[in-house]
Design a protein around this nucleic acid. Structure first.
Lengths: 182, 182
DNA sequence: GGTCACTACTTGAACTCTCAACTTCCACCA
DNA sequence: TGGTGGAAGTTGAGAGTTCAAGTAGTGACC
């Protein structure tokens, strides 16, 4: 992915005032193959699941994920920020999403009694019904695209690898740039 | 991810006229952990790279990927459909994207001499310049988020796994629902 | 050489997401 | 008790994406 760029860059003079840390650590050919495979698979997979869910359930994959989180939560309700955190998205994105899910009748908002700024997103009966109806199709799509194609070792590996990457992107330090704190 | 849904579904009567193929093959707890890790990592990673590139280079990650493809291509030009195929996106999405990249001066369109319906997307000098300037920062971001955290075995594994998934999502059959044929 | 199915690409509207305000409320502390 | 800084959530505008429909050109067949 960076080969041709490197060719262009390598004969370039280092900018004198540049405050970077040494020469760019380009990806090796093998690393490039891995990275390309990742980009292609994740692009195709997200497209595939979005399309399946949009067609069958009338919502994008992320929105479906929000309903799942709510279904898993005690009393099928979660504070907005908790939900954003759990879905790894910004509160703004969530606000818009919940507005739309509310319009579809699958989620409703409730005020938080203990904190007047707070809002709960609550899965409605209609929301549960839509999940019952479409969960099987969705799991099947995930299976076909991912689990049916991987050996148990590869599945284990995938979980470990993605766990490491996810962890690395949400450092515990204060001031970390996490979507739900933006 | 599907546990609570299962709980709701399992005591449900099978719809008599349903034309599905047997009971839903729910994900096991372990599969759910893997899937959740994948969703979280890919969400966070795409957010991270989008943000880095938007801040530094003024474009989203996908658009940057298009410039990379063009930089790698002979004469730094590709037919629209080839580019869409190589980036795994729809031609419509690409049309809009190229329109924007053209407005920024990083890409220009050229007519195809041999097929009057055809268009080339061509990386401009300004486009090459923007890549020279921002490739190092982007590679560094990818390294920090992914390669620096994985062992060589994990990297190899990741490449194989994502290769399998990508392959599975672009079957060679005619009539396959591929984004760039939509 | 006419027509017809198909290919290449674009377009506009509806939808989603980002970014930067903005409102409201909480917690702390003087 | 009355600031004040930060937290919770929303909003609107602009950017990006999808979907369905459109234009225009190709090529194969009769």
């Amino acid at each position: 992915m960076f080969k041709e760029v490197r060719r262009t860059v390598e004969h370039m003079k280092r900018a004198p005032a540049s405050a970077d840390a040494g020469p760019p650590r380009w990806l090796t050919d093998e690393e490039q193959r891995v990275w390309r495979a990742y980009i292609e698979a994740s692009t195709l997979l997200e497209d595939h699941l979005d399309r399946q869910l949009q067609r069958d359930a009338g919502m994008p994959h992320v929105y479906y994920g929000l309903l799942v989180k709510l279904a898993e939560a005690p009393s099928r309700r979660l504070r907005m920020t908790e939900l954003a955190m759990s879905a790894k998205i910004t509160r703004s994105r969530l606000s818009h999403a919940v507005a739309r899910l509310e319009k579809s009748g699958w989620v409703r908002r409730e005020d938080c009694p203990s904190d007047k700024r707070g809002q709960f997103a609550v899965l409605t009966e209609k929301g549960q019904e839509v999940m019952r109806r479409h969960a099987p199709g969705h799991v099947e799509a995930v299976r076909q695209a991912v689990f049916d194609r991987l050996t148990p070792e590869q599945q284990k590996s995938l979980g470990e690898i993605m766990g490491i990457i996810a962890e690395g992107l949400q450092p515990s330090e204060t001031g970390a740039d996490l979507p739900w704190l933006r």
